[in-house]
Design a binder for these strands. Structure first.
Length: 548
DNA sequence: ATAGGGTTAG
């Protein structure tokens, strides 16, 4: 055996015969002491010893040492070493006993193909083996393969258990396969696994919610006797993502009533709902409740998170809570609070986080502070389409058309592919600055934009024929493509159906008070003064030739 | 031996 100095010293200080117990203990200790070189050397030494003396150690010992070796390789993500161990296992006849662990090691090293090969070679697969393989596919979002395995196991007469179902529902929801998802739900009911296990339940609720079938999601949850916070949160998230703020609050209230405390997952969703409600008072109430129920037992820290109403929460915020809090700030026009959250984000080194930074750029952009938006943008280490789009939007919204176009042109140098939002923002920039030619040129460069708009509108009419937004979209499209006859048709159809576009609302933060105004609806106590001022402003703008 | 819910641009 070729011996390095450390290998040699280990061999010398280790006179007793190596077995599974001793080897795993030594390995774990070396690891704990961060003696990685020694660990490597010892592992090599142990492998060589095992290779020579397999016959003399018991089955349990060998399994244990293999298990611990596999575990080490997994932690180090060293698939090459997993391969070496596999060879040893096959040689010594231990392959089948702990094949599942080996499979798992391959998965964790990112070698799914090898894992699958081990899986296929294992005869008489245990339910856990099936579940692990399915799980490795779902965790990599390879949902088709996960479902394929699920279907195969059912065909082979292996009954799925609660672990299988909780993952398989996820795969169905990922792919949006409603019918098959329902069928699997049916099987779980027949097998008596549906309402007994919250893991199955939350996966089911999540699946139906992602299908947009909130009623089914609700029915599943209502059937549970012993609910937990995850089950509730899955439903809350579902309602939240479908814009059902009222239901969010209702389910949230139910959760509190049943004595279940919210956690940061729940609060993230509640915060977004509060923002979407556009009702600072109600938002404040619910937010306060969320905090009270969720965080009174939370770990104390020096940092405080300032949100919708500067409420202090004694937990360390992460990128999730910061970005949701910022989202709420920008929707409720809470610039001051947004600034303070920015400060906290900087302190925590989270201001360059993918999600937090976009929320910051968006917040500053919406509040008219393009400079701050840009400084957040400039501090980014990596750009992606979303961050660039947000910056373009900030420019566009605040009238900096040249800067918006310049950034748009730089996207090519950054090897970033513009998407629909990019074009929308760039066109918005042209629109705001009256750059008609530039706008037309860019619009013409988008592949079949007018045709696509028509297809989209028709599809929207199929999917949501009674949604006033669909008609608003359609009428806008007709107008923009110059199809005035159809425009009149759409408008009269809207009249007949008594559909009216929901008025836009605008909020602004002045000296920590949020003032809200609505198109064609004057309710502000100083509305007379405001309209006087408006007339004045319009006169001024006319003088400069900017008003037609 | 295996497991669940959250954050980005208009």
């Amino acid at each position: 055996m070729q011996s390095s100095p450390s290998l040699h010293s280990i061999a010398v200080c280790f006179p007793m015969p190596l077995n599974g117990y001793t080897s795993s203990t030594v390995q774990i200790n070396l690891r704990r002491l961060s003696q990685l070189n020694h660990l490597k050397a010892f592992t090599c030494f142990a492998q060589n010893s095992f290779g020579a003396s397999f016959n003399s150690i018991s089955l349990t010992e060998a399994s244990q040492s293999f298990t611990s070796l596999i575990q080490l390789c997994t932690e180090e993500k060293s698939s090459i070493d997993v391969g070496k161990i596999q060879t040893h296992m096959i040689k010594s006849g231990f392959y089948l006993n702990i094949g599942n662990k080996l499979m798992d090691a391959y998965v964790k090293c990112g070698r799914v193909k090898d894992a699958r090969q081990v899986f296929d070679e294992l005869p008489n697969k245990h339910i856990v083996t099936w579940n692990s393989m399915i799980s490795s596919y779902t965790s990599l979002k390879r949902s088709k393969e996960a479902i394929g395995l699920y279907e195969r196991m059912v065909l082979e007469g292996v009954l799925p258990d609660e672990y299988t179902f909780s993952r398989v529902f996820k795969a169905f929801s990922d792919l949006g396969i409603v019918l098959e998802g329902r069928r699997a739900h049916g099987l779980s009911v027949v097998l008596g696994l549906e309402v007994l296990n919250v893991f199955v339940g939350s996966a089911l609720v999540d699946m139906y919610a992602k299908f947009g079938k909130l009623r089914d999601a609700r029915l599943v949850m209502d059937r549970f006797v012993k609910k937990d916070v995850v089950l509730f949160t899955a439903l809350i998230v579902g309602y939240n993502q479908h814009g059902e703020e009222g239901e969010v609050l209702q389910v949230f209230g139910k959760m509190i009533n049943e004595g279940i405390k919210a956690n940061e997952y729940t609060t993230a969703s509640i915060l977004i709902s509060c923002g979407n409600l556009k009702d600072p008072r109600k938002g404040k109430l619910v937010h306060g409740l969320a905090i009270k129920s969720g965080f009174e037992s939370a770990v104390a820290s020096q940092t405080s998170l300032l949100t919708i109403q500067m409420i202090r929460i004694s937990i360390i915020p992460n990128s999730f809570s910061l970005s949701t809090a910022l989202q709420a700030c920008s929707k409720l026009a809470k610039l001051e609070e947004g600034r303070q959250i920015h400060g906290i984000a900087t302190k925590l080194n989270l201001d360059t986080d993918k999600y937090v930074s976009v929320a910051l750029i968006d917040m500053y952009g919406k509040c008219g502070n393009t400079e701050m938006a840009r400084s957040v943008f400039d501090a980014l280490i990596e750009f992606d389409v979303v961050s660039v789009n947000s910056m373009i939007y900030s420019y566009a919204k605040n009238g900096f058309a040249c800067e918006a176009l310049e950034l748009f042109n730089t996207m090519k140098d950054l090897v970033l592919e513009p998407n629909d939002v990019t074009f929308l923002n760039v066109l918005l920039a042209c629109n705001n600055a009256g750059l008609v030619e530039e706008g037309c040129r860019i619009f013409a460069s988008i592949h079949g934009a007018v045709d696509m708009a028509e297809r989209v509108v028709n599809r929207a009419l199929e999917l949501a024929p009674e949604d006033e937004r669909t008609y608003a979209l359609l009428s806008k499209h007709c107008a923009s493509s110059g199809n005035w006859n159809q425009f009149i048709e759409v408008k009269s159809a809207m009249k007949e159906m008594k559909l009216k576009k929901i008025s836009a609302m605008n909020s602004v933060d002045i000296k920590k008070d949020v003032h809200t105004s609505k198109a064609e609806y004057w309710s502000h106590q100083k509305c007379e003064k405001i309209s006087e001022m408006l007339v004045e402003l319009i006169e001024k703008v006319k003088k400069y030739g900017f008003y037609s």
